[in-house]
Design a protein around this nucleic acid. Structure first.
Lengths: 219, 219
DNA sequence: ATTGCGTCATACCGCCGCGTATGTATAGCT
DNA sequence: AGCTATACATACGCGGCGGTATGACGCAAT
């Protein structure tokens, strides 16, 4: 079995590859996986489809490359943000803020993965494309598991949030991907402040809701 | 000018229409607007495309009908849930729980509107389709404004949540649409309990986060 | 019986988009 | 100078899908 699907070893991208990936991320983000045609991706770079197919086997492979690079950068940032904190609550807070900040920058690539991965899986014909998409899904799951563990560590031991609460928490963080890109041109400090505000709101939700659970059952 | 686009007066749907709408809601929800073909919708009912086009002008019109009916039911439930409560906090809590409960049932139709409305707008060619989609968007906005007002009424007056907090709150509620349909076959009581838990988590997030705002700015 | 209308099914057109096959220009190597 | 590999552009095949045109079948009214 060839190990050409090694999910970690992506030594470097060519400038030509990065240009294609940037155009693909932008168009996949705007129009979705099915809505964005490879001709449109190529035209965005002033090129034609032959160039895209020279570097990527299929539309699905291009999709996977976009999201895989985004996950590389995201995981690096999360690891860097979580490392200096030993206190569980501070760790979780830093992770959440770093997660949202990473989504704000790199917005296009993360919209791609969050919204279009199902569509890509349906359109995939080749077996290796399916395998690459499945690897990406597993990577999403393991990434979310890291947050689940951080939440469990930060929450009071007698009232750990359940799976639904964790999913709701993560969706609150990922909600920035759906915000209209109107105020996209904010300063770096603005973005960090926005990320921290969203992270705090989501954190209050999980922790507080789990603390005194099943109290106000009646309206 | 004919007033056949009256957004409120939908006297009744035929049985044949309801069957088409149900099939369309299911397929649009599973495959998205672009991924679901009208042939597939028809085949799901054991019919052909001619039947669909006999009752709906276009694919976009079918899409709009699905979501419009769902919004009719949703707004009716919200109004019924909010009516008996005069206390702002209780009102908001009841509205949020009713919203999530309505999304859990009617899941397919609401996934359609939440996920596929942009794709439908891009694919729309006819002018009346664009007008119908625009009306649906305005309806979404006015619906969310109702929650925004309810939040402002329930929050302490000196710290009203801003637009970002409100959007994050609504996305937390709408997160159920993204949950995998694995545990879909839950009892009615289970669904209500799930809806209340999600609503409580989202509520704790907005209100608590807004109350002592900008406190833990540093990690 | 005939006419007309509602209710579909069937057949077909046109377009678009993925993928491929082929040509071409440039750079590097010998 | 030739030979080869890289890096594209161009052109085409082919299937799928939205939309339309046409026809068939039943039923109700006359």
């Amino acid at each position: 079995m060839p190990d050409d699907q090694s999910p970690e070893a992506q030594p470097e991208r060519t400038q030509a590859e990065r240009e294609i990936l940037a155009a693909a991320a932008a168009l996949f983000s705007e129009l979705g996986f099915e809505g964005a045609s490879l001709d449109a991706v190529a035209k965005r770079m002033g090129a034609t489809k032959g160039r895209v197919y020279h570097y990527f086997r299929s539309k699905t492979a291009l999709f996977c490359a976009v999201y895989q690079d985004a996950m590389d950068r995201l995981e690096a940032r999360i690891a860097a943000a979580a490392a200096p904190h030993a206190e569980p609550a501070a760790r979780l807070s830093a992770m959440a803020a770093a997660h949202v900040a990473a989504l704000i920058e790199d917005r296009a690539a993360h919209r791609v993965g969050f919204i279009g991965i199902d569509a890509a899986a349906r359109a995939a014909a080749r077996a290796d494309d399916h395998a690459a998409l499945e690897a990406l899904r597993r990577r999403q799951v393991s990434y979310e598991a890291r947050f689940e563990a951080a939440i469990a560590a930060a929450a009071p031991a007698e009232a750990a949030p359940d799976g639904t609460a964790v999913k709701t928490f993560l969706l609150s963080l990922n909600g920035v991907l759906f915000f209209r890109a109107e105020r996209q041109g904010a300063r770096g400090g603005q973005k960090d402040a926005l990320a921290r505000r969203i992270a705090r709101q989501a954190l209050f939700g999980v922790l507080a809701s789990a603390t005194h659970t099943e109290e106000t059952t009646k309206d």
